[in-house]
């Protein structure tokens, strides 16, 4: 089955799968040499790593990126110009209030569908799309229900699997985190595969992640599809669920991110927030002090660079200090 790689939660996995293609949620393993060089010049290490991954070859026929940050926009151009990998740049409006913006996103999904067809995809009929949507919806609901029985890393990795083909995403075996860990939220942008280590380090230091609000986590999972909308127009239901409901820093204005966060932090009795960002990611970085003023909870700033794999003590020390503070 032809694989389509993608690196943004605003690309609906259901849309890829419904075209008979294998979705591949791109998680570059780690920031490589190119990313380090890029970071030194002011480029987000994650975007640099996506370029590195595309240059070295990904196991997919094409790559889909989105315009939710300028780093990925430029990354897309760089990958396209190298000719190594066909790339599709999906326009995701930053504004969300207007019917025009919603229509633009829907039109972009249609354009993406035509791109899939060029890469071997078959346009789904409404019933097929609805079936795939409901299957993913059930899988995500099951994952969210099981969240308390999973370690943070398990949750993050399973969430990543559920952004791929469902057939190969077996449910995780429960591996409950220590019940006495301090309940924490992790908020921020995307993670490299190597960065998932930080969930373990955080847990070992005494934390318990009850809300994974990183780009690959719960924050960006579309909530239950409206069955009536699915029946009437599944593609519109899909577009609405993704475009209207995912709170993110890039939205203008981005008040919905704080509204969502406020609800979830209270519901889960979170005691501290780990704010995870890449250096040179302006969109998230700019939210740090605002978050600190907005919330009464302590916030740990965890800035990640291209060289962090080589400096695990830095992260560990911060976690320990943060948890000592919360103890």
């Amino acid at each position: 089955m032809t694989a389509i790689a993608y690196a943004s939660p605003f690309v609906p996995v259901e849309w890829i799968a419904a075209h008979g293609l294998r979705p591949l949620w791109l998680r570059p393993p780690a920031a490589g040499g190119g990313a380090e060089f890029a970071a030194a010049r002011g480029v987000c290490p994650y975007a640099g790593a996506v370029v590195d991954a595309a240059e070295t070859g990904i196991d997919a026929s094409a790559l889909v990126l989105t315009t939710i940050c300028d780093q990925m926009r430029f990354a897309s151009a760089l990958i396209e110009s190298s000719g190594r990998c066909p790339v599709f740049l999906l326009n995701v409006p930053s504004t969300w209030q207007t019917g025009e913006a919603r229509s633009l996103y829907l039109a972009e999904l249609c354009r993406l569908g035509r791109f899939f067809e060029k890469h071997g995809g078959k346009p789904p009929n409404g019933a097929e799309l609805a079936r795939v949507m409901l299957a993913y919806d059930r899988a995500r609901s099951a994952l969210l229900s099981a969240q308390s029985t999973l370690s943070a890393r398990q949750f993050a990795e399973t969430a990543a699997k559920y952004r791929g083909p469902l057939e190969t995403a077996s449910p995780p075996k429960p591996d409950a985190p220590p019940a006495d860990g301090i309940p924490l939220a992790v908020l921020g942008g995307p993670l490299l595969e190597a960065d998932y280590e930080f969930f373990d380090v955080l847990q070992r230091a005494g934390g318990r992640v009850v809300l994974d609000a990183t780009e690959g986590g719960e924050r960006t999972m579309p909530r239950g599809f409206d069955p009536r909308k699915i029946d009437a127009d599944p593609l519109r239901a899909l577009a609405d669920a993704y475009f209207n409901a995912i709170p993110d820093a890039f939205r203008r204005p981005n008040a919905a991110l704080y509204e969502w966060l406020g609800r979830e932090l209270a519901a889960r009795h979170v005691r501290g927030i780990v704010f995870r960002r890449y250096v040179w990611c302006d969109l998230w970085h700019a939210e740090l002090q605002r978050l600190k003023r907005w919330t009464a909870l302590p916030v740990l700033d965890l800035d990640a660079g291209a060289d962090d794999v080589a400096a695990p003590n830095r992260m560990q020390g911060r976690f320990e200090a943060f948890l000592e503070m919360l103890a």
Partner: peptide
């Protein structure tokens, strides 16, 4: 992104902004 983030900070301080989209 720099500008967008800074403008968002301006708005969060109580200066309403009429955002318009340039795709």
């Amino acid at each position: 992104d720099d500008f967008s983030a800074i403008a968002q900070r301006v708005e969060s301080l109580g200066f309403p902004i009429l955002w318009w989209e340039i795709p």
